[in-house]
Design a protein around this nucleic acid. Sequence first.
RNA 1: GCUCAUAUAGCUCAGCGGUAGAGCACUUGCUUGGUAAGUAAGAGGUCACCGGUUCAAGUCCGGUUAUGAGCUCCA
Length: 647
Amino acid sequence: MSKEITITLPDGSQKQAPIGVSGHEIASMIGVGLAKAAIAFSVDGNQRDLSDTVSKDADISIYTLDSDEGLEIMRHTVAAQVLARAIKNLYPKAKLAIGPTIENGFYYDFLSDERVSIDDLPKIEKEMKKIVAEKSNISKTIHSKKEAIKNFADINEDYKVKIIEESEQEDNFQLYSQGDTGFIDLCRGPHLPSLDKVGAFKLTKIAGAYWKGDSKNEMLSRIYGTAWKNEKDLKKHLTLIEEAEKRDHRKLAKEMDLFHLQEEAPGMVFWHAKGWSMYVALQDYVRRKQIANGYEEINTPMVVDRKLWEASGHWDKYRENMFITEIDEEHANEKRVNALKPMNCPCHVQVYNQGLKSYRDLPVRLAEFGSCHRYEASGTMHGLMRVRGFTQDDGHIFCTEDQIESETAEFITLLSEIYTELGFDSFDIKLSTRPETRVGSDEVWDKAEAALESAIKKLDIPYTIEAGEGAFYGPKLDFVLTDAIGREWQCGTFQADFNLPDRLDAEYIGEDGSKHKPVMMHRAILGSFERFIGILIENYSGKLPLWLAPTQLAILTVTEEVNWYAETLKEKFDEFNLRVDLDLRNEKIGYKIREHSNAKVPFMAVIGKEEMSAQTVSIRNLSENKTDTYAIDEAVSKLSEESKSPN
RNA sequence: GCUCAUAUAGCUCAGCGGUAGAGCACUUGCUUGGUAAGUAAGAGGUCACCGGUUCAAGUCCGGUUAUGAGCUCCA
């Protein structure tokens, strides 16, 4: 038997090494620089500590802080070794729970009798820096289940004990320690070999989190942090977060006077004139798109008797989220219990059910800008992104099983056009397949899942499968778009439903002359107008495309002598339905420009004596910060041309 | 819904037991100024709501509501 093994590096090159060679030794064999920078390595794709050894031929990859994996390992060490130890140093009675990495950072959950608040973060951070400065080596020992439990039971780390007890493993529990500090932590690793490899970090926030994420369990304290290779990267990340805060739609909405929310109607939007003009522009656009794509627009009641919700199943399954209304008895002959519709689908089936449908009528595509109300838990509301009263760009397609595929393809094409025209270049699709508990035969599920998948494949769009994540009534597609700063938003959805047509007796007469159940496809492209407008505001930092901009042009006068001329101009623009604000205030032009710039008005016409005598308009472009002068008619036609919606 | 925090002028915030403050916005006067803040004066507040402690409560305590950050939820 050979005493050497062959290791294969990521570039395909191979090296011979003795059996039992450590990760660190491999790194040294490749180069001194790498040995210094190495923080962990992988063996056949499994991440290992540098001190771990390799005893058979394997694919090896050495990690440094320059790779995503390396950064993640470092963040993990900062959480599990540095933050955890700092917590124990400052709050010796604290019980450590878990400390995983998350995107760009990490968190650590712990239980503490002593209250830890955001004001304590600098103190904890200082302690962490102290720990890092010790540059302790990190080493690990392997233990059996029994030993591991004893280790943590001895120091009253109840959560660690629980984690080990509940583990399916019997041995190989890894305990990491730092030099001779006495600190130990349970971890699957790997970790940095030494704390001197820790880069730049910062604790960002503190919040509560349930043990194991279950709201029935006790609430632990969670400290979030972010960690990077060096100070420069850390700063870059913090700047990015600031940028995201700057485009917060709640903040911009105040500055732009778009909408407000108030205590008497939590989660319901009071749209102001400027916000509503945006809403209307967007809705008109979607309306034209949908009608051009074979939908009929309908409108159905907002308040509907509980009987329909009982029949649809919502009364059973969704009642917690429904606003229930009861007529004041004094004023009503009969007492009826109604609910504000949380969804439009049952009402759409009622429209479908009027008149006998033939297979020749299918597919029937009904669309509604349906105003829905859902009683969302109080802690979940967030500006326009999560509200209790909202309007969906809802639609239901009643079709045969055979039509699912072509309807899917048509829907995705429409959705793709709309996203592109609204400025979102790419989106991902998630296909959710049958869950454990479901209605409908396997045969129908097979057919529907295959139809959805086949439609995506034919359009050659990448997608991922979320096995078992479908609704109980059918498989679905979710559409996730990416905004200008890389955040993902799930907006569109396309869901097959084998349940509701049955419950609400939707039927059609087939070629064979007998009655059949149609399949119902629930679909939305924007999701809700409220949320989508929130996304648009953030995506564009408030600088919306001209056709959506609340105010398209502000006419600013330099001196009051030209007021009459500015008023005449406004009338001209008004004739072309442009949204124009006239600013005749007794202020300097610089002041007016500044104000309207802050309000993100895309065009400003500066009107002074020069323009008046030449009968021209000087138009200043917000995005380019430059000014051009036009004849009046030229200016009007330019703006009305540019402000057209994409369809 | 849970944890923690917050709630003072239209907005952003300071004040933290002893007669309510700033900047901006607003109104008025002066200024008619040419491309991102002209100038002076004035007006503006049951300090979220309900209760308690105190001679005295934006200020301390309890509750309610809303908002924020997380968590949970989003058939």
